[in-house]
Design a binder for these strands. Structure first.
Length: 552
RNA sequence: GUACCCGUAGCUCAGCUGGAUAGAGCGUUGGCUUGCGGAGCCAAAGGUCGUAGGUUCGAAUCCUGUCGGGUACACCA
């Protein structure tokens, strides 16, 4: 493909005497060949010639070279140039190694970002899975990826939790906490937060207490303290981080390289805000950034109570990530309710850290709509917890051992989330996700099992690739893998991989329908195809964070 | 009110750096068939790509208006 592109660029610049020719080659519908270019259509106006005339000149020049890798060039439709590679060139592309298009780039990827003292919900799960996969995609293209996780261990929500804890336990009772079994920790903290948050809304007295707790919590991070409030805080904070870590392990995502608790980024952010008096101004007792100056809205960075807001902590984490990793690119993922908010933070960052700001990208995810309505909501209650999604899938999967059950249920959930474009709200249907029919994780896992089973029956050897028509159609799909991976990484669009893998499996099924592999005179070349097919399913799904079983 | 996101087949979604007859799954209808793992394959039905304009040789894709749904806009995160 690169060879074709470079050759085309050279020819076009030679015969039309042009410098800086830019042209894209794309993969068309299979009946139009392996690659297509619309360069003739693009140039026709400038050259004052019909597209087909331009195309003909290019075709002639190309034909004279007599490249052995190029089987044919056709002019079609309004003036498209359609190219077909020789079988061996096609196969060479089909067996290419990763393109490493991002070699030497250091990307900091911040995602998941749960708050301490709260339970992980379905939205965290979704974002964690996508973030994990984006990281895998970049790594595969040669980037160095640092995965970071920024979460609130200070702030009003923590104060509400603390209030809830002391109310539920009737005091900051360390003994009661110590007596609590580990598997109840997360649920207890969640309950305490909900209780605290509700009381905060309903009761003005509680509100005052919570606000006092908030200051106390901040204070714990700037001075040593041995009282019960402090002990409870640190214990529950540890519980939270332990629970996050275990959950990430359980869903088989790459570990985070660095957790940034807000308590750590707050002072850094405060330093930035206080140090930039020309950027941030005082208003009504608070320190604000006037976003209206750049078409946005005003946000408070330091409250009247002299406490840093999320804005300031976010500024702090940006600086810490930059100082610690000197990234080329920073990709941040949050819910899309923060899209506008983050623009203001980025605008402020652009003022205090201009060289950093331009390296930052913000992706946002929508909310999950549960497709099977009542069934899901009755199982999950009003809040859809992350664990309930995983458990729900696990209950629906049929497998004769626990590991296979896990492989299939995680595969089902992950694929179901990943196949949809990131950004808008997504639909999730438990039944559909675990289905072995259609565009699902278990379907692809089964596709792998089938291929693997064929490969067990005979030894594959490398032979000269000369394909029949249906073999070639399959080989052509196989050959697109590395280009797909590069595109997906460039666009941070994991669904491209899902779509491709599913189409690849369909392509195999069509091929397999009427092409015997084992005990056929074409066994060798067909085994070669199936071997590469199985490898791509394995590798592609691995990037999606999905394991494949050998039997199911 | 202002800004941002989203409107594609009955349902759920791909396609969006403009390109050839708008694709897939589920569902519906018909056919193939006990197969090297048929959890498949072939075919049919189903679309004014929300809508109206504009740019272009060419628009689901870019621009503008408009309608519908969602979200955010001062001391929460």
């Amino acid at each position: 493909m690169e060879q074709l592109q470079n050759t085309l660029i050279k020819i076009v610049s030679d015969i039309f005497d042009k410098e800086d020719v830019s042209l894209g080659i794309t993969v068309p519908e299979p009946q139009f060949g392996d690659f297509t270019s619309n360069i003739a259509l693009k140039l026709s106006k400038e050259l004052a010639a019909s597209p087909r005339e331009v195309a003909l000149k290019i075709k002639d020049a190309l034909s004279q070279e007599n490249f052995e890798w190029l089987k044919s060039v056709e002019i079609a439709g309004p003036g498209f140039l359609n190219f077909s590679l020789s079988d061996s060139a096609l196969w060479q592309q089909a067996t290419a190694t990763p393109h490493q298009t991002m070699d030497g780039t250091h990307v900091v990827l911040e995602y998941s970002c749960p708050n301490a003292f709260k339970e992980l919900h379905a939205g965290h799960l979704y974002q964690t899975l996508v973030g994990d996969v984006l990281g895998n995609m970049l790594v595969r293209e040669g980037a160095k990826v640092t995965r970071t996780n920024f979460g609130g261990d200070v702030g009003l929500h923590v104060a509400k939790s603390m209030w809830g804890i002391q109310d539920l336990l009737q005091g900051f009772d360390i003994a009661k906490l110590e007596a609590m079994p580990k598997d109840e920790h997360a649920a207890f903290l969640s309950k305490a937060y909900v209780h605290g948050a509700k009381s905060y809304e309903d009761n003005d007295l509680v509100k005052l207490q919570v606000e006092d707790f908030n200051k106390q919590v901040y204070g714990l991070h700037s001075s040593e303290n041995e009282n019960d409030f402090s002990k409870v805080y640190w214990m529950c904070r540890d519980w939270s981080y332990e629970y996050f870590k275990e959950f990430y392990e359980s869903i088989e995502v790459a570990p985070f390289d660095r957790f940034y608790p807000e308590s750590e980024t707050a002072p850094v952010g405060l330093g930035l805000v206080r140090g930039a008096v020309d950027v941030f101004v005082e208003s009504d007792g608070a320190i604000i950034f006037k976003g209206e100056d750049v078409g946005l809205h005003t946000r408070v960075f330091i409250t009247r109570e002299n406490l840093p807001t999320y804005e300031t902590k976010d500024l702090g984490v940006i600086k810490l990530e930059h100082d610690e990793y000197d990234f080329d690119k920073r990709v941040l993922i949050t819910g899309n309710d923060q899209a506008e908010y983050m623009k203001v933070v980025f605008a402020a960052a652009a003022r205090v850290m201009p060289d950093v700001a331009q390296k930052m990208k913000h992706l946002t995810n929508g909310t999950i709509r549960f497709g099977d309505g009542q069934k899901m909501s009755s199982r999950l209650g009003n809040v859809s917890r992350a664990i309930d999604v995983i458990d729900g899938a696990s209950q629906l999967v049929e497998a004769d051992n626990e590991d296979l059950k896990k492989v299939l249920s995680l595969g089902a959930v992950k694929y179901s989330f990943l196949k949809q474009r990131f950004g808008a709200d997504i639909a999730f249907d438990l039944e559909e996700s675990v289905s072995l029919h259609g565009n699902s994780g278990p379907y692809l896992q089964y596709a792998y099992v089938r291929a693997h089973s064929i490969l067990q029956k005979a030894e594959a050897v490398d032979v000269e690739p000369e394909f029949t028509e249906s073999e070639r159609a399959f080989a052509q799909k196989i050959s697109q893998f590395e280009a797909v991976m590069a595109d997906a990484a460039r666009d941070l669009a994991q669904q491209i991989i899902c779509t491709y893998l599913y189409e690849l499996a369909q392509s195999f099924n069509r091929f397999y329908e009427d092409n015997r592999v084992i005990d056929d005179e074409r066994q060798a070349v067909r085994l070669m195809l199936v071997t590469r097919y199985a490898q791509i399913l394995h590798d592609g799904l691995a990037v999606l964070g999905i394991r494949v079983p050998e039997k199911m």
